[in-house]
């Protein structure tokens, strides 16, 4: 960043007395002060809202700070007016890499199991989001009767608050009273204990999330398709290309810039999609359908809240996504994308 040169500190005093030769800093300041004034609010807000919490979080992950050992002294007030303060016997301290060792070795929580479930969850959701979104976008990208109505209806799931849809789907999959099992019994299949096995339990969450996430993909891809020039299709048609060939050789390449961005976004969102797992499966059975973010939440925020442990999970999740983004970008650059 160029902010290094932005230091508005007063230039050395002698400079002020030599009007012929102002320092570079001074010249820059005189010329661009207005720009700096405009930039500083953003820098300050970013520093306060992002950089400070991030650095603080990383620092906390190297301590054993919890709610119980955070105070230097614990004061007990008596209703009769007196107050006794005792130094906290187990005050928090710097513990180095302990938290990481405990999490990664499986002593605390189920990091590797959660990671595996998270990967299944993310891949399944993004594949279906993209596939169904693309299919719907292709269908809606040609003149047809009631196109606007279809588009509005298909965007609707997106407009419903996530927790509302989560509860609705949870009830659909209710083992005793839900719609899914009554449909199964109606066609003569035994009802399924949806939440009794981690595979079916995860399936309910994936179905919910697909329903929620397809509209975004569809809208984004539809937008992308409309930027593909119609002449290309005309030319292809004249050359006798089949619809499949047109799709493969015009639509897909034309969508690449949009696709790459929405897949990256979708992956990050799904990876960190907290409410669906938390509300639909509740991690059942016995925590086996927990993903990283919900597992970390339960590990760190149930009972006496463990700030250091939650920071550790936060840093680990951030690192995974960071590594993913770096590889993804590198892959794109190799293929010649300017992103």
């Amino acid at each position: 960043m160029t902010t290094v040169t932005a230091d508005p500190a007063p230039a050395p005093a002698p400079a002020g007395r030599r009007p012929k030769q102002p320092s570079r800093l001074r010249r820059s300041w005189d010329k661009h002060w207005y720009a700096w004034a405009m930039v500083i609010p953003v820098v300050v807000v970013l520093a306060v809202l992002i950089f400070y919490p991030l650095v603080r979080g990383i620092y906390l992950s190297f301590t054993n700070l919890t709610e119980a050992n955070q105070a230097a002294e614990i004061c007990t007030r008596s209703i009769t007016g007196s107050e006794v303060c005792k130094p906290n016997p187990n005050r928090w301290e710097f513990v180095g890499l302990d938290n990481y060792v405990r999490v990664l070795s499986g002593e605390v929580g189920e990091f590797w199991q959660w990671t595996a479930v998270t990967l299944i969850w993310t891949v399944a959701c993004v594949v279906f989001h993209y596939g169904l979104g693309l299919g719907l976008a292709v269908m809606l990208n040609r003149p047809m009767w009631g196109r606007t109505l279809y588009r509005i209806l298909l965007v609707l799931p997106w407009a419903v608050p996530a927790f509302v849809s989560a509860f609705a789907w949870k009830f659909i999959f209710n083992e005793r009273f839900g719609l899914a099992n009554s449909l199964l019994t109606a066609v003569g299949i035994d009802p399924v204990d949806w939440f009794g096995d981690w595979r079916t339990s995860l399936l309910t969450a994936i179905v919910t999330n697909i329903w929620l996430g397809v509209p975004f993909m569809m809208v984004a891809l539809l937008g992308g398709m409309q930027t593909i020039p119609a002449e290309l299709y005309e030319a292809a048609e004249i050359d006798g290309a089949t619809p499949w060939q047109r799709f493969k050789n015009i639509t897909l390449p034309g969508l690449r810039p949009v696709s790459m961005t929405v897949i990256l976004l979708g992956t990050i969102w799904t990876f960190n999609m907290f409410p669906i797992i938390f509300l639909v499966t509740e991690g059942q059975p016995a925590g086996e359908s927990e993903i990283l973010v919900t597992g970390a939440y339960r590990a760190a925020f149930e009972g006496i809240r463990n700030y250091s442990l939650s920071s550790t999970y936060g840093v680990l999740i951030l690192s995974i996504l960071l590594v993913f983004s770096v590889f993804y970008r590198r892959m794109l650059r190799k293929q010649g994308e300017v992103w």
Binding site: W33, W36, A37, M38, I40, P41, V44, V45, V48
Partner: peptide, 18 residues
């Protein structure tokens, strides 16, 4: 005057963030 503008915008940002 420039200094004041910078200061004012900084304060504004801080107030918004707090």
């Amino acid at each position: 005057a420039k200094g004041i503008v910078v200061l004012a915008s900084t304060t504004l940002a801080l107030t918004l963030a707090a």
